[in-house]
């Protein structure tokens, strides 16, 4: 399916994806509770920072950092790796392959369709943060908001494409759920989700510079909290989108090769 045709079909795909996401109300509530890691980290770091700042972060900055982390994580989440693994093992990937929508586009739309649902918990957090900290921490111009939108989109694309790449591996190694576990460990360490990346010691910071994870969370967070100047934002966005392009090519090739190994098990 061409991208233009996919866009034409996308309102229905989004609507159906959203309807599917809200079908189970109890599960929705449990899921909301499972997204609170940044608040746990905020409580821990704040307790430590009560005595003295940690690096450049005092209690207020830590509060803003982890609130922004929560927001960015909600906007950039993806679970495609888990979904592909499940569908390959169950043979239900066949249904997707029979439709004239490329599965990579199909999974993307389903993942994106959950974002409006996530906004239900993001908006009260933003309102609460503005009430408590004021609005001064937010981007102050349309250009800065555009930069944040680009960084959030880039962050989502990196997350999503890594997920698809890991999912594709399940066609080679039967299940890549453990690879997903390894990825999540690296993500939690290097993305800035649990620790601000500028608190890393020198060698770890250098390593993090060369990995894509910091562009998933840390960069959008830094732009949202106005932690970078314009020049640094532009430089970092270029690097982030270079990762996006690289991952897009790698993932597409990997998927095309992997899908030849699909066994369409079970029925």
């Amino acid at each position: 399916m061409s991208l233009a045709r996919a866009l034409k079909a996308s309102p229905t795909l989004f609507r159906v994806g959203f309807a599917g996401a809200v079908a189970y109300r109890a599960e929705l509530l449990v899921w909301m509770l499972s997204t609170t890691t940044p608040f746990v980290m905020l409580a821990l770091f704040s307790a430590v920072a009560a005595e003295q700042p940690i690096g450049n972060y005092d209690q207020r900055q830590l509060g803003l950092y982890f609130i922004a982390t929560f927001i960015v994580r909600q906007l950039t989440g993806s679970w495609a790796a888990w979904e592909i693994n499940f569908e390959v093992r169950q043979g239900t990937l066949s249904v997707r392959l029979l439709r004239p929508v490329h599965p990579i586009i199909g999974y993307a739309i389903e993942n994106l369709a959950a974002i409006p649902l996530r906004l239900i918990i993001v908006i009260p957090v933003v309102v609460g943060a503005i009430a408590y900290f004021g609005a001064g921490w937010l981007p102050s111009s349309a250009v800065k908001w555009a930069a944040f939108a680009a960084a959030a989109l880039g962050g989502w694309l990196i997350t999503y494409l890594i997920n698809v790449a890991i999912g594709s591996l399940s066609l080679y190694i039967e299940s890549s759920v453990k690879v997903l576990d390894v990825y999540l460990v690296l993500f939690f360490v290097f993305s800035g989700y649990t620790i601000p990346v500028d608190l890393f010691p020198g060698w770890l910071a250098t390593l993090g510079e060369w990995l894509p994870f910091r562009y998933q969370i840390a960069l959008p967070v830094q732009i949202l909290t106005s932690a970078h100047d314009t020049e640094a934002v532009a430089r970092e966005l270029v690097r982030q989108w270079a990762f996006v392009v690289g991952l897009l090519v790698t993932t597409s090739v990997l998927w095309q090769r992997a899908i030849r190994r699909y066994g369409a098990f079970g029925g």
């Binding site: 229905t12 795909l13 439709r99």
Partner: peptide
């Protein structure tokens, strides 16, 4: 083409079949 199997389904499990019909309308234009 279409492949229908008695053991695998394309219907969206949590939604009414009408939603799957509409999804297919959009997908197949």
């Amino acid at each position: 083409i279409m492949l229908v199997t008695g053991q695998k389904q394309q219907l969206l499990w949590d939604l009414p079949p009408a939603d799957t019909f509409d999804l297919n309308r959009a997908i197949y234009d």
